[in-house]
Amino acid sequence: MAESLLAKLGDLNFTAEEQDAVVVAPESVAIPAEDFACSLVGRVLSSSPLDGGRVARLFRTIWKDDKVQTITEINPNFFLIAFASSSSRDNVLK
């Protein structure tokens, strides 16, 4: 199953807007600036806004609670995920 998901992800094409960098000012979120080193910004591609709380619970279930410190919705369908360590963040990226 993981291989088929990775194959599908490899076929994704993003619009120019979706490829733009997302800039998050440290003062706009409720985590210390030093925690940004262990953080990721993710976007859920959807045509309608999603319930941020439900998305956060889903991420926590997939990535295990002990790896995730906070999940903050910074814009509709954009999330700042702060991990317990940079190795936890790197494991999620892999």
Rank of each mutant, 00 (worst) to 15 (best):
I71V: 15
G42L: 15
Q19H: 01
R43D: 09
E18S: 01
F79R: 03
D20K: 12
E34T: 05
S87I: 09
K64W: 10
I71N: 10
Q19C: 10
L6Q: 15
N75P: 00
M1T: 12
A21T: 06
W63N: 09
L5Y: 01
F83S: 02
L93P: 00
S4T: 15
V29W: 06
V55L: 09
P26T: 01
D65F: 11
R60F: 10
D35P: 00
C38V: 08
S28I: 10
A21H: 08
A56G: 10
D11A: 13
P76E: 12
N91F: 15
K67R: 06
P76D: 13
S86P: 02
V92P: 00
S87V: 08
K64N: 07
S39G: 09
T61M: 06
G42E: 05
V68K: 03
I81K: 01
D66H: 13
A7L: 12
T70D: 13
L12T: 03
V55D: 03
G10Q: 12
E3S: 15
N13V: 15
L5H: 02
I74D: 05
V44I: 11
F36Y: 06
F79A: 03
Q69W: 11
D11H: 05
F78R: 10
V55C: 14
T72R: 09
R54V: 12
D35C: 11
I62F: 13
G52N: 12
N75L: 14
D51C: 00
S85H: 05
N91E: 15
I62N: 06
L80A: 10
V24T: 03
V22K: 07
Q19I: 05
W63R: 06
Q19F: 02
L40F: 03
G42W: 07
D90H: 08
M1Q: 07
N13W: 11
D66L: 07
S46P: 05
K67N: 12
T61W: 06
F59D: 01
G10K: 12
E3V: 14
L45C: 07
N91D: 13
A56T: 07
R54Y: 08
F36S: 02
I62A: 12
T61F: 11
A30D: 06
D65Q: 13
V68A: 02
G53E: 04
F83I: 03
G52W: 04
K64R: 15
